[in-house]
């Protein structure tokens, strides 16, 4: 049975960066992983897993949004992060547009609460809302980002 989830509950202010510096897919992935505050070795393993997932097909789902995701033993619970890159980067997105907004989702291979898939689905649903890209562009603080998630009630 899928757990009932609300995205707002999973995002920590410390894991939100509205001014990513990376200029490439790899640099942005590393920056997003850095928001999870795991040790260096775990960061390296997460990077490899996320890169491998991207090699299967870009997680850039269009409209400037990407949802890099993977499962890994190096985390003991579901972890999420959000990053924004004002100028956008080339991410091989399915609509070939630059990606500005990144939702990172990482979960252990086995979860007691089974939250990974519902959260992945919710983020994809959130990303489809017509006004979301423009709203994400306008937010000024992590609190505003969290308020947007709450407002959309996803």
């Amino acid at each position: 049975m899928e757990a009932h989830v609300e995205l707002r509950e999973f995002f920590d202010k410390d894991a939100i960066n509205l001014d990513l510096k990376g200029e490439t897919k790899d640099e942005v992935l590393k920056e997003l992983i850095g928001l999870l505050n795991v040790d260096e070795k775990s960061e390296a393993i997460l990077f490899k897993m996320l890169r491998r997932r991207e090699n299967l097909g870009s997680t850039g789902i269009g409209r400037g949004i990407a949802i890099p995701h993977c499962r890994s033993l190096v985390v003991n619970r579901l972890r999420v992060a959000f990053g924004r890159k004002a100028n956008g980067i080339d991410y091989d997105a399915i609509d070939n547009s630059p990606v500005h907004y990144f939702f990172l989702i990482v979960a252990p291979p086995l979860e007691v609460s089974n939250q990974y898939l519902p959260v992945l689905g919710k983020v994809a649903q959130f990303a489809k809302e017509p006004d979301v890209p423009s709203r994400l562009a306008a937010i000024q603080t992590p609190d505003e980002f969290l308020a947007l998630l709450a407002e959309k009630a996803v």
Binding site: E2, M49, S72, L117
Partner: peptide
């Protein structure tokens, strides 16, 4: 660890219908 992570990814695609659906339809 990497092998186990890849096996988890494989399991999601082969055994978890809803996961496969998300990967195929959304991504």
């Amino acid at each position: 660890l990497q092998i186990q992570d890849l096996k988890a990814q494989r399991r999601d695609l082969t055994e978890v219908e809803s996961e496969r659906k998300v990967e195929e339809e959304e991504f």
